[in-house]
Simulated assay, not measured.
Amino acid sequence: MRAKAYQLVEWQKPPELREVDVRDPGPGEVLLRVGGCGACHTDLTIMGIPPGFMPYKLPFTLGHETAGWVEAVGAGVTGLERGQAMLAYGPWGCGRCKPCRQGSENHCERVVELGYHGGGMGRDGGMAHYAIVPSSRLLVPLGSLDPRDWAPLADAALTPYHTIKRMQPQLVPGTAAVIIGVGGLGQMAVQLLRELTPARVIAVDMSAEKLSRAKELGADNAVRADDKAQEHIRELTQGQGAELVMDLVGSDATLKLAASVARARGLIALIGLGGGVLPFHFFGVPTECQVVAPFWGTLPEMLEVVELAQAGRLRMTVERFPLEQVADVYRRMHEGTLKGRAIITPHG
């Protein structure tokens, strides 16, 4: 069978929508008919990395937020039925090292040896009509959730969830969390903070429309990202700053703002890949404030995220696009004109 896939063929060159062979799944593998695949800023970063920077081999299909329906299974796979809606866990580890055995394939110790991080990151991902998942252990049932709307649970929800879970014991009544950038990822972060913690949720963005949406989703305060943002956030936190600052943009300007509004013994989470740099010195961040770069989340955490969505406690703001428009989607993402999470729906 032949089908289309959006593939990175040459480093630092535009990806191509190509015809590819769809092979039968091998032992332990699952073939998904892709329902939806979320477009992520990380994809733009992958498109721009220089040769040799990552251990990936070309070509490979982009897309690491993949959901769809079981089309076929390989030898040894049991418990799955054709047509069953599934969400693919993004990080594909070796399955044998200690982190993988603990469900933290995002921290697999053999990434360099394997030559990939997961589908869309060194191996074929979900920007295609069909996608092979290397093991049924990497699939989570969606139940009644539509793969065309909920594929971003695999990253846009999982990554902020992982960060928030880490800080949950500190986010008690009277504390605050700041989210810089309330696009697709930020909108999920707002809801997850609202669901998991009693902290004051402060959304920061340049777009009045996105700030309004953040308020609808549960943000307590909306702050425009201008030269008054630091002062405004300090006022909202009684001059103390926020226990958690999640930078979903990652530019020099947003990192500077994050450091200026974090609280002593707090945490700055750099999630956005805007290419910014945070200079580190003794007076560069508040006393004993941690700076971390979260990478996805664990498989058990993704199960929890899906359960939140199944319980109706999360809302996903999405825009659907056919596979033929994927290049235009990434152009709009670069321009910042998308309203929520763009999802490519190869089968309509």
Rank of each mutant, 00 (worst) to 15 (best):
W150K: 04
M246V: 08
G126D: 06
I343A: 07
L217V: 14
A342C: 08
Y89L: 09
G125D: 06
C108P: 04
P152Q: 12
M167Q: 15
G52Y: 00
Q12G: 01
L255R: 02
K4F: 13
P134K: 10
R194Y: 08
E16M: 10
G336A: 09
V285N: 11
L142A: 09
L314T: 10
G241D: 03
K215L: 15
E10K: 15
I179R: 09
I132Y: 10
P59V: 02
I46W: 08
K210F: 08
P59H: 04
I46V: 15
D227P: 05
G266C: 06
T175R: 15
K57C: 00
R101K: 12
A176Q: 05
E29S: 09
W11I: 00
G35L: 00
A88K: 13
L138R: 13
I179P: 04
G48L: 02
G126A: 09
R82I: 14
E335Q: 15
R332I: 05
L139D: 13
G90M: 12
G119A: 13
E231H: 14
V70M: 05
W296K: 01
F283I: 01
P51K: 04
L308C: 08
N106S: 06
I164Q: 07
H117S: 11
G115Q: 14
R33I: 00
Q238R: 06
E288Y: 12
T175W: 06
E113T: 13
D155G: 08
G218D: 06
R213L: 15
G348W: 11
T163R: 12
P91L: 04
M47A: 05
A72T: 06
V20L: 04
D227C: 04
V201I: 15
W11L: 05
I268S: 06
G90I: 03
G126F: 07
G275S: 08
P169Y: 14
G63Q: 00
Q170W: 12
G218W: 10
Q102D: 11
A177S: 15
A264N: 04
L153A: 06
P169A: 14
G218E: 10
P91C: 08
A269P: 01
A259E: 03
I49H: 07
H41T: 06
L44K: 01
D149W: 00
L114H: 03
M246P: 00
I344R: 13
G48V: 01
L87W: 13
K210I: 10
P322C: 06
D227Y: 08
P51M: 02
A253P: 00
T254Q: 09
M167C: 15
R148M: 07
A225T: 01
A342P: 11
